[in-house]
Design a protein around this nucleic acid. Structure first.
Length: 186
DNA sequence: GTCCCGATTCTA
DNA sequence: AGAATCGGGACT
């Protein structure tokens, strides 16, 4: 009889690597939170104080503090007066960097996602960073959580996911648009 | 304290 | 293309 290999959860050492590597490797992995799950399809890297688009470009503040902490923690911030965005902190403690999870393909908890999003089209459920957080119910309360150990919040291997990785400049920013730090799986 | 604007989304 | 909507960060 064939055994199904247990879904392996991503560990601290996965996230503690160079951010561009983590970003590409996160594509195709499964994000889960509070009964919902989705396959990561689009990410962006924000790397250090020299990256003009990074929230840490002007040093450490109360908001970006978790970016300076250990890898594998969530960095959730509020933007445009109505949306939240989810990042995962990368690299060593003291170096501010993170990967923004821009979109996922919903695979579990779709009913509750549709309730929160107030849409019936699965294609619009989590097709952007703000949509994703609304669908999963992620808010500021989920900032600074250890995604390698929190039982209901984390990222794990996906049994089968395929596709090709495409690279683009990041979007929605004014500076740093020359850097090809946006990655899409399709 | 005041002011500007944002790692977005929805509607027209 | 424009609106919605409010907290963060720069500056007075």
């Amino acid at each position: 009889m064939q055994t199904i290999s247990p879904k392996k959860r991503l560990s601290r050492s996965f996230f503690r690597r160079p951010t561009l590597k983590v970003a590409r490797d996160l594509l195709g992995k499964t994000l889960f939170y509070n009964g919902c799950a989705g396959i990561i399809k689009e990410v962006e890297a924000y790397i250090g104080e020299n990256d003009p688009a990074c929230h840490a470009a002007r040093g450490k503040t109360a908001r970006n503090e978790v970016m300076y902490g250990p890898a594998g923690f969530s960095y959730v911030y509020f933007v445009y007066g109505m949306y939240y965005c989810l990042n995962v902190v990368t690299e060593r403690k003291g170096f501010p960097a993170a990967v923004l999870i821009r979109s996922v393909e919903p695979i579990r908890g779709i009913e509750s996602m549709m309730k929160r999003r107030k849409v019936s089209s699965v294609g619009r459920l989590a097709a952007g960073p703000g949509m994703l957080c609304e669908a999963f119910g992620i808010t500021r309360k989920q900032n600074g959580i250890d995604l390698t150990s929190e039982p209901t919040f984390g990222i794990q291997e996906t049994p089968c996911s395929k596709g090709k990785i495409y690279t683009y400049p990041r979007i929605g920013i004014k500076e740093g648009t020359n850097l090809p730090w946006r990655f899409v799986l399709r």
